[in-house]
């Protein structure tokens, strides 16, 4: 069973610079990622927007291993700011999980 956190979902809505709403899951980002992680970034963003806290927490290593190289972003047809979205997730994890500001 999946547990959704309305608090995380609300945070993602409010997060300045987070614009994954336009993503239509074409998979360009996944195909181009030099790391070759299947999860990054489309599935991850959707999980965050739905407030699936446990799923996001399980992806912490992937979130922090993103190169922020913008290869995906440069080619995203929906013009999602993927690198900035990843940074936003890092910011939230740093505050909530690691006690870092």
């Amino acid at each position: 069973m999946l547990r959704a956190s309305s608090e995380l979902a609300a945070r993602m809505k409010e997060a300045e610079g987070f614009n994954a709403w336009a993503c239509f899951h074409c998979g360009t980002c996944t195909a181009l990622c030099p790391l070759g992680y299947e999860i990054l970034p489309r599935k991850l963003f959707r999980e965050a927007m739905l407030g699936l806290e446990d799923r996001v927490r399980a992806s912490i290593p992937q979130i922090f291993s993103c190169l922020l190289c913008r290869m995906c972003e440069e080619n995203c047809p929906a013009e999602v700011h993927i690198a900035e979205n990843i940074r936003t997730l890092r910011y939230l994890i740093n505050r909530q999980e690691f006690g870092l500001k």
Binding site: F64, R87, T88, L89, R90, Y91, L92, N94, L100, K101
Partner: peptide, 9 residues
């Protein structure tokens, strides 16, 4: 530090 999302610092 910005890249790693420690925005306040």
């Amino acid at each position: 530090v910005h890249d790693e999302g420690m925005d306040e610092v």
